[in-house]
């Protein structure tokens, strides 16, 4: 079953997403028997949303979200939600905020 997700790219991350901070996406299901998890969403973002391959390393390091990017699932720290194993639900708001920019 596919899920509808709202994505937010903040703290300057929007530059690698056509300078758009807010996106609505539908992540298609890969396998009917297993629910979609956050790891699937990350793969979806990398495969479909980052236009320039050079920008992937801004977002991903060692196959996960790059350290220094804050990931929130419905305003809750993803560390409390199981990180990449979090089971996506339609209507979820996932935000990625870069903390690496100058203050």
């Amino acid at each position: 079953m596919s899920v509808n997700i709202k994505l937010e790219f903040l703290g300057g991350l929007d530059v690698i997403f056509n300078s758009e901070r807010y996106h609505k996406v539908t992540v298609p299901s890969t396998n009917a028997s297993t629910p979609l998890i956050l790891r699937d969403l990350i793969k979806y973002i990398v495969d479909n949303m980052i236009k320039d391959p050079k920008d992937i390393e801004v977002f991903i390091e060692n196959d996960t979200i790059r350290p220094g990017i804050l990931t929130l699932i419905n305003d809750t720290d993803w560390e409390l939600e199981g990180e990449e194993e979090y089971v996506l639900e339609s209507g979820d708001v996932i935000s990625f905020t870069s903390t690496l920019h100058g203050g």
């Binding site: 300057g12 720290d77 905020t97 203050g103």
Partner: peptide
Amino acid sequence: IVLYAHYKKLDYFSTE
């Protein structure tokens, strides 16, 4: 600090 700004919806600028 980033979380605080985010939750409080403070207006800040973020471009390298």
